[in-house]
């Protein structure tokens, strides 16, 4: 609570009407911002002033404003979700900025995430990757008692850490190749670690990776910026595990198909 003085900031914000039109930066003043306000609350105030002037508001996705739904996210001065580690834009507070600063806001830039309007992008590619196999095939109603299969606490905790991904897309946006490896691997790892998910882990890895490759994402070259910019600090180890799962699955798959020849 050191910084109690209100701030005056200048914002350069990417404005783009739709996917067809050309975008550009526009400059806005953000006067008298409380350091206790959140970053999005500061943008709200600018938007209110635009409405009063009859101008269109700056579009951005947001919902929970608690860092959990994964809706929000844009680049702030070149950093996905801004300067604070392990923090989504909606949880970023103005006490992290200083008076007189100029701040630049840009949408996620990735071919697989087409811009919809201003700071809003289309991340439905992520849903398609999950749809390809990011699940356990357990029909409703037939499940055994939840304590029937004990799961080592260590595995459950590890699975949780991978499952904590909020699907915001910061990993893709901050990667120079726009790779979705961290997102995809987190789900593959989460499910493979649990006995319930291990049953289908080979097919799952093959299907999800195939879907990831068919979207416009780039290849992973292990630079690690994804994990560094992840608001949930999802570990790079997930990618290594995915590669292992995928390789093993490809080999065993080959054997199954060409089993006779190989014998």
């Amino acid at each position: 609570m050191e910084n109690k003085k209100n701030l005056n900031l200048t914002l350069k914000i990417w404005r783009q009407k739709n996917n067809q039109s050309k975008g550009e930066f526009k400059t806005y003043d953000a006067p008298n911002v409380s350091p206790d306000a959140s970053f999005l609350e500061m943008v709200d105030v600018i938007n209110e002033s635009l409405v009063v002037k009859g101008e269109e508001t700056i579009a951005f996705d947001h919902d929970c404003r608690e860092g959990i739904c994964g809706s929000c996210g844009f680049m702030i001065d070149g950093n996905a979700h801004g300067p604070q580690k392990g923090t989504t834009v909606c949880q970023l507070h103005m006490r992290n900025f200083s008076d007189g600063q100029t701040v630049t806001l840009e949408p996620w830039r990735a071919e697989a995430f087409p811009i919809i309007k201003d700071l809003m992008v289309d991340r439905s590619a992520f849903d398609r990757i999950i749809k390809a196999g990011g699940y356990i095939s357990a029909n409703t109603g037939g499940a055994p008692d939840a304590n029937a299969v004990p799961i080592p606490k260590y595995d459950a905790d590890e699975a949780f850490l991978s499952a904590a991904c909020i699907g915001c897309g910061a990993c893709v946006a901050s990667c120079k190749n726009a790779s979705a490896a961290l997102f995809t691997s987190a789900k593959i790892t989460h499910l493979a670690l649990l006995p319930q998910g291990a049953v289908e882990k080979d097919q799952r890895a093959l299907d999800m990776v195939a879907q990831m490759d068919s979207e416009q994402f780039g290849a992973c070259t292990s630079t690690g910026t994804c994990s560094a910019s992840c608001p949930k600090e999802i570990s790079l180890i997930n990618i290594a595990k995915m590669n292992r799962e995928y390789l093993r699955a490809s080999w065993t798959k080959k054997e199954a198909v060409h089993g006779g020849d190989m014998a």
Partner: peptide
């Protein structure tokens, strides 16, 4: 059964 990692 769906893989929800509840605390253990």
């Amino acid at each position: 059964a769906q893989g929800v990692p509840l605390a253990r």
